[in-house]
Design a protein around this nucleic acid. Structure first.
Length: 661
RNA sequence: GGGCCCGUAGCCUAGCCAGGACAAGGCGCCGGCCUUCGGAGCCGGAGAUCCCGGGUUCAAAUCCCGGCGGGCCCGCCA
């Protein structure tokens, strides 16, 4: 049991790659740093299960392409004894490998059987301690679909890395020191002063979002009116026109907001309009909070806590995306961590004064060739000096983020920190790494990864948190669950109301996650709810359905598989059966690759392919009707393998796999 | 002005970093399959200047150079 091979397929890949490397090494040449990348499944089944383009080796070995392929094939044949590599052919410069299906099945079945929920985990030799910070949405409005992409990615990365044996910590950064939070707090203050409804109605973050949007819009209306007034007095026609347009737009937004809660809106409107200078009131709250004055702490924290409560309901409660730590930006400042960082900055050779403000200048640092190559800096990129402290003595977001970056390394004794943050934050993320270098934190700078993802748009929706124009993630998920429930009800097999609801939740949430994870993070995407809810191919429900079918076949067989009588020679007797075995065996290899390359979409793509192959196979090669005892046992073993892989792979993406649906 | 990302059938996506065997799937469209373990299914068909132009190579969707189109970023905002 302890000697079970976790990844037989991967071993075959490695054997092929190793023989190619050795061949080159013996000749004293070195071209490909990792020949493993050259091993791939060939385009046609008659070419075998694995192929290696041996043309590459021809020139360095001083051979003709066909000779090189034959030489390598010969070596692989010799090395293949006792492995799952069967026939090895040399065709047109390729080395094609046919796996021994019976041997492969024997090993993979044993692995799936003994490892079960752990099957697919291939631990690295030297596990790392890795922090993943993700989602970290501004706590002033509900989460939307963009945050969902962030959360789904962060969670999937964490799961993938854990499956690789790394020790992972998930953190959420609560950015409570920005102006946006001060605006929200101001709104809350005015609300309680005016005796308006000061307690959340409905989900707390939705309510907070409304208070924030109303307050922000009212404050903007007030200041726009004032500027309009000034422009009129100055007789600046063009400016008057522009401001008038802006004001009309704001008033329109205010109208929309009022419709959502007239009582709340009117209470806030009266209070804000009565304020001489809202901007100053907001700035006062921000300052008082930074200096930890009790009234401000109470005010801000209670508002932000409500919003966070809503976030947790959505992320942890609904989506199953859990966090280990919730870090408050304000704690960093109050704890003097930011202060100490500034001390260090002032002693740095890169410290400079930019006008009145304290700053770091990276001009010299970015010429360092190692810095350039490791951070991937383009030659001509001009990185602006990074202001650390305003001339009024207050800190900036990025300053605090530098302190936070160090904190993440220290608090968890981390080897690596991955920040899942929108692609538009590239420059500030780069500046943080440069700042760490400037302060002498090389290890941290080179081990902090910005995992950038592009925007998610909803068709026909222009989002604006400040104006309250957004589609909340809760509503999208709700729609997905609703639709899933209808589909389940259509099939109507007396699952019972509660069970139906639970499965609908798993299917709906899974569909949303899969849609977000299936596309490479570097691509901007349009989230089309109709497509997501289509539940056809290339969706989570399609894959979950295959899993449910597999589960059902096993259940009908009585729940246990007669492993003792499995006839492994049955593996090769049917083309679709054989193909399914090979594809299912690829899982540990794929999971390891997806983890090492931080690419959850590889798992998503793999899952879809496996489900498809399973769906092709089972109607043409029935399991339960099989008369031969050994073959039937083999097929049950295969179904078990597929079910295990589907389950575990979905789990890597944070998607549940119901037994029935 | 500079930098980064993206550009593959009507639409969406994989392949690009690590160049190789007829560019792989999905949606939509057309045609089949409910007498077989649940049809959220299966089988078949039509549909592609891989944005354009050069270059490197035995071989380019993939690498290099130059363009074009779209997105994002260049605040004492966050």
């Amino acid at each position: 049991m302890e000697r079970v091979e976790r990844d037989p397929y991967g071993s075959a890949v490695k054997l092929l790659a190793r023989e190619a490397s050795k061949l080159l090494e013996e000749k004293g040449v070195c071209i490909e740093e990792r020949p493993e990348y050259l091993v791939s499944p060939p385009p046609k089944p008659e070419y075998g299960d694995l192929s290696f383009p041996a043309f590459r080796l021809a020139k360095p070995l001083g051979l003709k392409p066909l000779e090189a392929a034959e030489t390598l094939a010969e070596r692989v044949r010799a090395a293949a004894a006792g492995s799952i590599i069967g026939r090895v052919e040399s065709v047109g410069g390729f080395v094609n490998v046919f796996l021994d299906a019976a041997g492969l099945a024997r090993r993979v079945f044993a692995a799936a059987r003994t490892l079960s929920g752990e099957f697919g985990r291939v631990p690295v030799d030297e596990p790392l301690r890795i922090v993943i910070e993700h989602t970290s949405a501004n706590p002033v409005h509900p989460l939307h679909i963009g945050h969902a992409r962030n959360a789904a990615l962060g969670d999937a990365l964490a799961r993938l890395l854990e499956a690789r044996g790394h020790v992972v910590q998930r953190r959420f950064y609560i950015d409570d020191m920005g102006r946006q939070v001060a605006v929200l707090a101001y709104g809350m203050m005015k609300l309680s002063e005016s005796g308006g409804p000061a307690e959340p109605r409905g989900k707390p973050d939705h309510w907070i979002g409304l208070v924030y949007a109303i307050t922000h819009t009212l404050v903007d209306i007030k200041s726009t009116r004032r500027r309009l007034e000034e422009a009129r007095e100055a007789g600046d026609e063009d400016r008057v026109r522009v401001l008038q347009e802006e004001l009309d737009d704001l008033v329109g937004a205010a109208g929309e907001l009022r419709e959502r809660d007239p009582e709340l809106f009117d209470a806030l409107a009266d209070a804000v309009m009565a304020d001489e200078d809202p901007e100053e009131s907001i700035a006062r709250i921000a300052r008082a909070y930074e200096f930890r004055e009790e009234w401000a702490v109470k005010l801000v924290r209670s508002a932000v806590e409500r919003c966070i409560e809503g976030f947790r309901e959505t992320l942890e409660g609904r989506m199953g995306i859990m966090f280990d730590k919730w870090d408050w930006e304000s704690d960093l400042v109050w704890s003097s961590m930011v202060g100490r960082l500034l001390e260090e900055a002032r002693r740095s050779p890169y410290f400079t004064l930019h006008k009145e403000a304290e700053a770091l200048d990276f001009k010299h640092l970015q010429r360092d060739p190692e810095v350039r190559s490791r951070l991937g800096l383009p030659e001509t990129l001009e990185i602006p000096p990074l202001i650390l402290v305003r001339s009024d003595g207050t800190t900036l977001y990025t300053t605090r983020d530098i302190a936070y970056s160090l904190y993440k390394f220290r608090d968890f004794n981390a080897d690596r920190v991955i920040n899942v943050i929108a692609a538009e934050q590239r420059l500030p993320q780069l500046q943080i790494r440069l700042a760490l270098l400037a302060l002498g934190y090389r290890r941290e700078a080179f081990n902090m990864i910005h995992y950038a993802y592009e925007m998610v748009n909803l068709p026909g929706v222009k989002m604006s948190g400040r104006r309250g124009r957004y589609v909340a993630l809760d509503n999208l998920i709700e729609a997905a669950i609703q639709k899933a429930g209808e589909e389940i009800a259509k099939r109507n097999r007396g699952l019972g109301e509660e069970r139906t609801r639970e499965i609908a939740r798993q299917v709906g949430v899974g569909a949303v996650k899969y849609a977000l994870l299936g596309v490479n993070a570097a691509k901007p995407m349009v989230f089309n709810l109709d497509d997501t809810l289509n539940f056809e191919r290339n969706t989570a429900p399609y894959i979950q359905y295959a899993h449910a079918r597999a589960s059902k076949i096993l259940a009908k067989a009585g729940g246990n598989i007669p492993w003792d009588v499995v006839d492994y020679n049955a593996a090769d007797k049917h083309p679709a059966r054989r193909r399914l075995l090979v594809e299912a065996s690829r899982f540990p290899y794929i999971a390891a690759k997806a983890a090492d390359e931080l690419r959850p979409e590889l798992v998503a793509e793999y899952l879809n392919g496996l489900a498809e192959i399973f769906n092709t196979w089972y109607p043409q090669d029935p399991v339960l009707a099989e008369r031969d005892e050994g073959a039937r046992a083999y097929k049950l073993g295969l179904v078990y393998l597929v079910k295990t892989v589907l389950h575990n792979a979905l789990n890597l993406l944070g998607i549940p796999a119901p037994e029935e649906m």
